[in-house]
Simulated scan of single mutants.
Amino acid sequence: MVQEDSALAGKVAAMDRRIKDLERLLTLGLVGGDVEATLQQHTILLGRLIGDDTLGNVLMGPFPSASSAQTLRRDDGAFYQSGSIGVYPLASTLGVSQDILYATPFYMPATPNFMDEIAIEVSTINVGGAGNARLGIYEDAGGIYPGKLIKDAGTTITGLLGDHKLTVNESTPRGLKWLVVVFDVAVELRTTAVTQNAGSWAMLGSLASNLNSLMIGFQASFGYAALPEMFPAGGSKQGSLPILYLSFKPGGWS
C-alpha cells in the first residue's frame, strides 16, 4: 500500500511539473494560435537582442541583414506595386479572366511590414458594369511559389473605373510574399498590369523554349470563392499579370 501511494505521488508530481511547464510556454506565447508565426517572431527578437548581425541574419532567414535600396518602403500610406522592385515598369493593361487566381511577387522589407491596404486598378469595366474581385496575400512556399494564406482581404467591386482598395491590417516577417486576385466576372474587364518589359521583376527566368519570354508570376484555375488556405498546386508561369498595390502603416513585427 505504501509503495502504491509513493508511485501515485510520483505521478502527481510529474504531472504538476508538466502543467507548470505548459503554463510557462503559454505565458511566453510559444503554444496556441499560429505556432510557426510565433516562433518566427521570437527568433527575430532574439537576433536583435544578441546584437550580432551575422547571427541575427541566420535566425531571420536567408535575406540580407540590411535592406536593399530597392526594397525600402514608407509607412505613410504610399502604395507599392507587385511584380517590380524599385523600378516601375512601363504602363500597361491586361484583359483578365474569371475563375483564375493570379499571383505576383512582392518583397516584404524588414520595416515597415504592417500592411495597411491592398488594391487593384480597373482600367476597363465589364459589359453591364457588374463584377467582383477578391484580393489577398500568400507566403512563399520556399521554392519561389505561393504557399500558405496570410490574409484574405475580402472583395471589392470591379464595375467602376479606378482604384479599388481593401483593408489588410496584418503584419508579417520580411521576405518573399505573393499578392493575389481572382475575378468572378471578366467580360472585357481590364486592369493595370505588369508585363514583359523594363522594370518587371522576372524572378522566374525565361522559358527554355523562348529566351525572350520572361516569367513574372503564376496563375492557377480556381472557382471564385474565399481564398484557399494553400495556393493551388500546378500553377503556370506567366509573363503578364494584374498589378496589385500594397500600402503600409506604422507598427508591426519588431
Rank of each mutant, 00 (worst) to 15 (best):
M1K: 12
Q3E: 12
Q3Y: 03
S6H: 00
G10D: 12
K11E: 02
V12W: 00
A13H: 02
D16A: 12
R17N: 03
R17P: 00
I19N: 06
K20Y: 08
K20M: 10
R24T: 13
R24N: 14
L25P: 05
L25K: 15
L28A: 13
L28M: 12
L30C: 08
V31K: 08
V31T: 15
V35L: 10
A37L: 15
L39W: 11
H42Q: 13
H42S: 08
I44P: 00
I44E: 12
L45G: 02
L46T: 15
R48Q: 09
L49I: 10
I50T: 06
I50N: 03
D52Y: 03
D53W: 02
T54I: 03
T54A: 13
L55S: 01
N57M: 13
V58C: 04
L59T: 07
M60P: 00
P64V: 06
P64F: 03
S68I: 00
Q70K: 14
L72I: 12
D76Q: 07
G77A: 05
A78P: 00
Y80W: 05
G83A: 05
G83M: 04
I85F: 01
Y88P: 01
L90E: 07
S92Y: 02
Q98K: 09
Q98F: 00
Q98R: 08
D99E: 10
L101S: 08
L101R: 07
L101N: 07
Y102A: 06
A103H: 06
Y107P: 01
M108K: 08
P109G: 14
P109E: 05
A110R: 15
T111C: 02
S123H: 01
G131I: 12
I137K: 10
Y138V: 10
Y138L: 04
E139I: 08
I144W: 14
L149C: 13
L149Y: 14
I150G: 08
L161M: 15
D163C: 05
K165E: 14
L166T: 10
V168G: 07
N169M: 07
T172D: 13
P173K: 06
R174T: 05
G175Y: 10
L176M: 15
W178P: 03
W178N: 05
V181A: 12
D184A: 04
V187G: 07
V187H: 13
R190G: 01
A193Y: 04
V194C: 02
N197R: 12
A202N: 10
G205P: 03
S206M: 09
S213W: 09
S213K: 13
L214M: 14
I216G: 11
G217T: 08
F218A: 11
F218M: 12
S221I: 15
F222Y: 13
Y224P: 06
P228G: 09
M230I: 11
M230E: 15
P232T: 13
G234W: 05
K237R: 07
G239S: 12
P242F: 02
P242K: 09
P242C: 03
I243G: 03
I243W: 00
K249N: 11
G251C: 06
G252I: 09
S254F: 04
